[in-house]
Design a binder for these strands. Sequence first.
DNA 1: ACCACAGTATGGTCTGACCATATTCCCCAC
DNA 2: GTGGGGAATATGGTCAGACCATACTGTGGT
Lengths: 241, 241
Amino acid sequence: MSGWQPVRRTRAFEDVIAQIERRIAGDGLTVGDRLPGERQLAEQLRVSRSSVREAMRVLETLGVVSSQVGRGPDAGAFLISRPADALSDLLRLHLGLSSLSLEEVVDARLMIERWSASHAAVRGADLSAMTAALERMDAATTAEEFVEHDAAFHVAIAEASGNRLTTAMMLSLRDSLRRYAVEAVERLGDTAGLMADHRRIHRAIAGGDAAEASAAVEAHLRRAYPGISLPPGGERHGSGG
Amino acid sequence: MSGWQPVRRTRAFEDVIAQIERRIAGDGLTVGDRLPGERQLAEQLRVSRSSVREAMRVLETLGVVSSQVGRGPDAGAFLISRPADALSDLLRLHLGLSSLSLEEVVDARLMIERWSASHAAVRGADLSAMTAALERMDAATTAEEFVEHDAAFHVAIAEASGNRLTTAMMLSLRDSLRRYAVEAVERLGDTAGLMADHRRIHRAIAGGDAAEASAAVEAHLRRAYPGISLPPGGERHGSGG
DNA sequence: ACCACAGTATGGTCTGACCATATTCCCCAC
DNA sequence: GTGGGGAATATGGTCAGACCATACTGTGGT
């Protein structure tokens, strides 16, 4: 006989999540709204508070809920939207488990940064954040300081692409690579090459040249991660067509 | 006065996660290995079982742990690696919260699918999975059936790119868009256009033509999601250089 | 008007119990 | 000796109830 389904024991906290999710979809529940307290939710859903709390941990991990203790309008569980935080945790753990390789992560980052720079160029993005980050990098005296503003520069590019999902991906990818960033700067010895790359990227976006922006980003990342063998042909996406 | 840090109350379950993570990084703990039981872990870490369980929920949500009840070598908590599942949950919730728009998701999917197809073409990927999916789509009689094998086709492209991270992203993006896929097929009425796109993609990858593969994927997604205004210039990433 | 303190609602943690499940062990019948 | 069946056990799943730390709220005194 076929068509059997494995008995799906639904755990209590999964039911809680499903019901909260349903209320997000159904009712107008949206970012900033407050959820009922754990005790109240437990009573309404006829589950124990522990199960409600496990559901909260999951939603918190996924970046859609945040909890504050205490009393008053700021206390309790709220709907938020922090996909990048969730993605960072995910990448960090899977990198640690070696279920994802550094090469794959760098490769994905290259994909997203090229895409972001291209889009930023085409959209005619606001360059002020990038410009400010460039100036701060020039003034930096330590590798840590440089890396901090370098991150701001790349984040500005991602945000200029106008896509919050790819921006979140880019943020989390860079976050999971941060430990390699400082050592990369220290290994290179000086930041002149990196800064030249940055200016080239900045110039290309300012000039609206998507192809040049994309190529500049690729050159920059190849310089920053010389040990990573990026796949051949990376510079040919969509060329000509 | 500056330089103050907000007092970081570390919750017990966060400590548990940190210690498990440390043992993954430090000891050789890897995928397939078994974690101590909840009671034992609680005793060793001097926390309550509830805190251990909350940590487990988080790790489970992030796709690195799976738990089975019962007794024996297959029971207990194990290290796994399912980043795509975690990503799917993340996207689904954030889409529901409208903290990500359908347009942003489709846009990101286009980025990844074009990249995957390009890489698959350059790498000279194994085409058997794609070919099989094409044949099954031809034989499909319902929209649901068609969509199922369509998914297999696109997954095969992603896997052919050789990058597990972008593959996971692609899987989860498509998963979160599945509800739109069936209605898209039904709206189009017939699948001739989609199949022509598929064959064009297949041909380009087989021929090692990255640019054509990328363009074909874009044309395909524009046909599948005509309501989504994909950003201008999407076809120009890295062109010429 | 202000300040101090009690009240209270919130999440965080712990304890201990019981249930459901699935394997392992062991004794008894054959 | 072998096979079967039930007891023992180890595991996660769930619950109830308590207590703590935190942070607002209200109240009463100055």
